[in-house]
């Protein structure tokens, strides 16, 4: 019963993830006073890619061909560790938030390799920048989560007992995590998802050579990763008791609350994207340094007891 619930949750999350991206775009367009594409545009894109023929470069190897499956597979596996709106794999002790981060690293590793595999300068540049940004993101993410978990109510709490709620240090840590979310989901001010100019793209550069179903897989993976980060952020700031019972009413309530949190996250991200400009690559390092400072600040504040 629990296993089927888990799989159902994962399936719904993967299917609903592009909707979140569409919603963010709608928010941005509304702020820009435009009509813009429809809410379901990401779905149309994925369907289009699935219908197309795939062209694979001769310079590539099996890594290029298997990366989309690995990336999407690891993202889906990571999804099972997050308490979305019901039971997750972390509960009986399969892994915790750290496992989640390292599963993301797995996907990123192979995506970067695939970028280098194409033999073009676009892919190489994208890989280099992606790994550069990721190396500054990791300490911030891990430290923020550690601060939050360290201040949790239960004395035995591990890294998944993120039930801080709205305490002061929790909010500062959440600010740091928000900056991490912007970096990991390739949003302005770190990366621009709407560009394909060689000097301005990071995530898109690694995907440049992909086409057809592979590209569909990678795009779905990106949407799902974004959903995972949003749900993590929401679970930290505004937790709801999850996974305790399998009764339908509880699950429905948890699901509704979850949707509300995601909508809020999406709106805030959309606002951020519209208000800021994309930073130079080396300014991103400063940006993430600021996030690190926030997480250290959160640690100090939680040490003081707030």
């Amino acid at each position: 019963m629990k296993a089927s619930l888990l799989l159902l949750q994962a399936g719904i999350a993967v299917l609903g993830a592009p909707l979140v991206s569409g919603f963010i775009r709608k928010v941005k367009n509304a702020l820009r006073m435009r009509q813009g594409a429809s809410l379901g545009q990401p779905y149309y894109n994925i369907a289009k890619y699935m219908a197309k023929e795939e062209v694979v470069s001769e310079a590539t190897s099996w890594i290029f061909r298997w990366t989309p499956s690995i990336v999407l597979g690891s993202t889906v596996a990571a999804l099972m560790f997050v308490p979305v709106f019901s039971f997750s794999l972390s509960a009986p002790g399969m892994g915790d938030v750290l496992t989640l981060f390292f599963l993301f690293s797995l996907g990123r590793f192979f995506l970067a390799l695939a970028g280098l595999d194409t033999g073009s300068a676009f892919g190489g540049m994208g890989s280099s920048r992606e790994m550069f940004i990721a190396s500054f993101v990791e300490p911030v993410a891990i430290l923020s989560v550690a601060v939050v978990a360290g201040h949790s109510a239960s004395p035995q709490g591990g890294l998944m007992a993120c039930s801080m709620g709205m305490s002061f240090s929790g909010m500062v840590a959440a600010a740091a995590l928000f900056m991490v979310v912007l970096a990991e989901t390739s949003r302005i001010p770190v990366d621009n998802q709407e560009t394909h100019l060689e000097l301005t793209m990071i995530h898109e550069a690694m995907l440049l050579e992909y086409s057809g179903p592979s590209l569909a897989m990678l795009e779905t993976a990106a949407h799902t990763k974004q959903l995972i980060w949003f749900s993590l952020l929401g679970a930290i700031l505004w937790p709801w008791p999850v996974g305790s019972s399998a009764a339908l009413s509880d699950i429905a309530a948890a699901a509704a609350f979850f949707v509300l949190k995601i909508v809020l996250c999406a709106v805030i991200v959309g606002l951020t994207e519209v208000s800021l400009a994309k930073m130079r690559l080396f300014r991103v390092a400063d940006f993430l340094g600021l996030a690190f400072l926030f997480s250290v600040l959160a640690l100090v504040i939680s040490g003081l007891g707030y």
């Binding site: 690891s74 889906v76 794999l89 002790g93 399969m94 892994g95 915790d96 496992t99 591990g158």
Partner: peptide
């Protein structure tokens, strides 16, 4: 109460992929 079960992670990864 942090736990890790690597075979389960491997299983989840393999199944996902």
């Amino acid at each position: 109460d942090a736990c890790l079960r690597t075979p389960m992670i491997m299983l989840a990864l393999g199944a996902g992929i």
